[in-house]
Write a protein that binds this DNA or RNA. Structure first.
Lengths: 237, 237
DNA sequence: CCTCGTATGATTGTATACAATTATACGAGG
DNA sequence: CCTCGTATAATTGTATACAATCATACGAGG
């Protein structure tokens, strides 16, 4: 339609700044840094072999993503992500994914629907074979298709952010054949609701899909994803 | 509880970068720049009397906020905000404000509830007097209290972002005594549901509150808020 | 021994210089 | 006249130098 939206990733990975951004993002989400640990511009720069300039720019972005907090003239501190944050995100996402499915029902294109059908089909195949890596990939892609199909760059933007935020935790969760299969069956039902132009049902199913995903994650021990991160404890006097 | 969360604004207004960020944000939301207009680092820097460094950092943040799009080695282009974006945001917000009200019901503190009661009381007073500026202020604050009371930094962060995003449009809308009064009455009902620990009702009321706000905005002519911005038209061949 | 002020060092904030990349203009060749 | 390649200019990407701010240590004074 309009060729303005040929947008690549919001943050390219091929500039130094982009690399710093993605590296720090990964490290923070991985739990490499303690919560409230101070990140120094020179130190990070030296570790990655770059000057302060790209590091600073990456810091500003990470701040807006909520991963670090910058106190002016003082320093950058890791915010981290707690179990409660993950829970909150899933609750928020459950609502927004529902809305997304509703809108996608009204706006999905033929091409998108075709890719979605292929996605579900392939996922079924890989689930039977136990190819966990591919299942995770297809799961990601399924949701992305949904985001793109909703025809709302605001909602798409939000959901992609959240999606990336919990990606690390989620990948671990999907490494579980039972849930992988169940998840894909839910995808299929969502897709069928969309094909049937049943927006109410699509919304409800997508909503429940998120809740199921979260509950499965809790059941399998969400905390394992954070085993290497110390829980924040009340500082004793 | 923990004193880590004494966070000030995510982007301070007293550094050059902060000033550039807020200035560009305002200008973009105000429609000073055409959609898809290219922003040049030197030009912006000269206009504001600063070097490229703070401008670049501000650009990175604006990109993450979705207001501009940066194409590597090429330039920064204004994304702008369309009427559809505003509509989408209100639909998204209606869901999230509902969730927020639900959580606030479970987590609001005595102090927050007191400020909320004072807020509603004052708003009633100013509405009767026709003090539009104060009504707008109190309206903003009411929602902020709600955001802070929900006890979820993820949700609070999201809602504050959206809130700021549509603030300019909204201020114009509230400059309307009828809606100001109705809006405040809705605030009161939400508050009472929270006081009665009726989370279901609080959610429903907050949800409807957003929808009403949006519909009122449309009725009064959302487009007026964008009278100085050209609508994007399909480029003819 | 404690308190406060100053000096010093460390760290962030900003400006500028230079490198890399991209867009444009122009001319040679067909 | 058109196409393509090269040169040039403009713009972004990065590194570094300098300024401003903040934290710490240390010593004078009480």
């Amino acid at each position: 339609m309009n060729n303005y939206d040929v947008k690549q990733e919001v943050t390219d990975k091929y500039s130094l700044r982009g690399r710093v951004f993605h590296k720090l993002r990964e490290d923070i989400l991985n739990g490499k840094y303690e919560e409230h640990e101070e990140l120094k511009e020179v130190t990070i720069g030296e570790e990655l072999g770059v000057s302060r300039t790209p590091v600073r720019e990456a810091f500003r972005q990470l701040e807006l993503e909520g991963l670090i907090q910058i106190i002016p003239n003082k320093g950058a501190y890791v915010t981290g992500i707690t179990e409660k944050d993950v829970k909150d995100i899933y609750m928020i996402r459950s609502l927004l994914e529902g809305l997304c499915a509703r809108w996608a029902t009204e706006h999905i294109t033929k091409e998108q629907l075709e890719e979605m059908e292929e996605n579900v089909y392939l996922a079924k195949f890989h689930a039977a074979k136990g190819h966990m890596e591919q299942i995770a990939e297809l799961d990601n892609r399924f949701h992305e298709i949904l985001y793109e199909a909703c025809n709302s760059k605001m909602l798409e933007h939000q959901l992609k952010d959240f999606h990336a935020y919990v990606l690390r935790v989620r990948r671990k969760t999907l490494a579980n054949q039972v849930r992988g299969t169940a998840s894909n069956e839910e995808h299929e039902k969502i897709m069928e609701a969309i094909k049937a132009h049943d927006a109410d049902n699509a919304e409800k199913l997508a909503h429940q899909h998120m809740i199921n995903a979260y509950e499965n994650m809790v059941k399998n021990g969400l905390h394992e994803a954070y085993e290497n991160k110390k829980l924040p404890s009340e500082p004793k006097a």
